[in-house]
Design a protein around this nucleic acid. Structure first.
Lengths: 331, 331
DNA sequence: TTCAAAAATGATAACGTTTACATTTTACAA
DNA sequence: TTGTAAAATGTAAACGTTATCATTTTTGAA
């Protein structure tokens, strides 16, 4: 591979001048710039980023860590991060924590060794010790958290307002005439699921609807049991006309069960999910849902990072994204 | 950040000896090794990969290109690639081609500049000119293709046997007593969809079943039209008892339409998809399907690459993976 | 004790850039 | 024509490693 040394030889110019051309320095005349570019073309020169990184301390690499890449939400975020950063000529290195603090730290260590210019991370559920991240941040490496953020005093972050999303979903059902609304809740150990539950409850309260614990279900995912549970629920409460599920998968599952029970969606019961996962567009009827704004989240996180990569002083900011109501046939 | 220079100063040993310790060279006594390790600990030393890469020509980075990261199949592959390669202490850089030859080449150029040690790629549909890839391969950078491979004389690749998968799916329906099997076909411009169609047709033939063009449908994805089409089909052919769909999304869609038409799955009609996408496990009934082996594919591709990264001479091999039949309630 | 081979260590030049500083060339006013 | 500032170019050291070759130390047989 050709180096600037070769170009220097070919053109008779010094290394410095040649280097200046590729760094778009204004301190070089148009004539020599052309001469260098021509020589570069001829030699099929490609700058060696490793050498540049070593000397300048800027690797043009950004590290990204997510719990699981094989997950609609996260791969959606990565998608927009990749787009945004590759437009700004950054490369992204991706690691998965698989919800393990150990793997997360291993990845961060790799990033450190590679001297990445910045880090984008959605922390694992398991992580409780942020000393490694703090170390990175103290080294003036900008870090932006997305979706899952630690409770640190100073940090940049982008998160979704889950409470609001649940509220919107429930309000949407009410607006469409639903009076008896059931919530299919998630694991109460996961905080975002609790926030969704709270949003549901508060939306009911605000509209002077009755809140009943009997209307908040957690399913077993055993088809027989769940079918029985729902059958009984509808037998005892034939007026139920709305369901807000905490996730799209479970929403689809419930919808399918209702159909087999002869309950028509959306005619008899309106149903809405959460996530706006791909398949919600392919079902029949198509499922209404709450979009988690993975695109915007990735974009915003990438933009925040870019800002901090360019500016010398790091500016911390916290962004909360509003979810979007996606209305389809199921409501 | 501390460097081997600092360790050298602290221990009084030469740079060479210190370097040897971190490269696990056998040419260093146990006593000095311990001394160096202790000093490294004290100084919180982390090797600088950029410097090592520059000097040694080995970056410990592997570049991965997929059409879309936000796609079950590809993110599944990336998942296993990342696992395998990070275990071998490689970092992976991920780029998306978005089915554009230009973006693909841009990513490859980035890889070149970063002097990646190897490349894993699933080529974009648009790509017709492989000169850039050939250039990379001629530079002794090992390349392994997965799922989408070019027609090159010498190349390593891992692909799925789509024909076999379709054959298996159809055979499975026949084995379960289906006599009149419909195929929901995909866009005939995409070669893998044609191979799936061929597998369906050949399975019918082999079992002495009638093959009818009327039983091969392409849907519009307009719900009203598709509902009518299916309604008519079943009115005219009430004996239809099996459906093989070329994809899981369309399979779910068809299943939902059948349910509304009062056609029971799997009682009256058995239905099977292709892909083993996540949601097939969350439907009711759960959808039988063909697994595309994304895990194995990623793993195998990563292993092939690792082999070529370690060996001096590059060995080309082509692997064809057999899909797996996943039997669930829909059949 | 001597000596050669083996084992361990050291000195130093790369790798391909960037960059601070020095020098030369150019432009233009006096 | 000269002087001076601005523009353009050059010199050389650094970035943190690795790797070649040279040197020293250790080991153990004669």
């Amino acid at each position: 591979m050709a180096s600037i040394k070769d170009i220097s030889k070919l053109t008779g110019l010094s290394l410095a001048t040649v280097s200046r051309v590729f760094n778009n320095s204004p301190l070089v005349s148009e004539k020599t710039r052309q001469k260098v570019l021509k020589a570069a073309e001829k030699l099929d020169y490609q700058p060696n980023m490793m050498a540049a990184a070593l000397r300048s301390g800027k690797s043009k690499i950004v590290g990204v860590i997510v719990p699981e890449i094989n997950n609609h939400f996260f791969s959606g975020i990565i998608n927009s991060i990749e787009k945004k950063l590759s437009d700004a000529n950054y490369n992204i290195i991706i690691s998965q924590s698989h919800e393990s603090e150990e793997l997360e730290n291993k990845a961060l260590l790799s990033f450190l060794k590679l001297s990445v210019d910045g880090v984008l991370i959605s922390i694992s559920k398991e992580t409780t010790d942020f000393s490694f991240l703090k170390k990175l941040m103290h080294q003036k490496t900008p870090v932006v958290f997305f979706d899952r953020t630690p409770k640190l005093e100073v940090a940049s972050s982008v998160v979704l307002d889950d409470y609001k999303g649940a509220f919107m979903a429930t309000q949407h059902l009410i607006d469409n005439g639903c009076n008896e609304i059931v919530h299919i809740a998630g694991d109460p150990k996961v905080s975002i699921f609790n926030r969704r539950r709270d949003g549901y409850v508060d939306a009911l309260k605000e509209n002077n609807h009755r809140v009943s614990e009997n209307f908040i279900l957690t399913l077993t995912h055993d088809q027989e049991t769940d079918t029985t549970v729902l059958k009984l629920l509808f037998q005892n409460n034939p007026k139920i006309d709305g369901i807000f599920a905490h996730g799209d998968e479970i929403c689809l599952y419930v919808m399918n069960i209702l159909t087999t029970l002869g309950i028509q969606v959306p005619k008899q019961v309106k149903i809405i999910g959460f996530g706006n996962v791909d398949f919600t567009e392919h079902t029949y009827p198509r499922i209404s849902t709450i979009d988690q704004k993975s695109n915007e989240m990735g974009l915003l996180a990438a933009e925040m990072l870019l800002k901090n990569l360019n500016n010398e002083e790091i500016i911390h900011s916290q962004q909360v994204l509003s979810p979007e109501l996606i209305i389809r046939e199921s409501t």
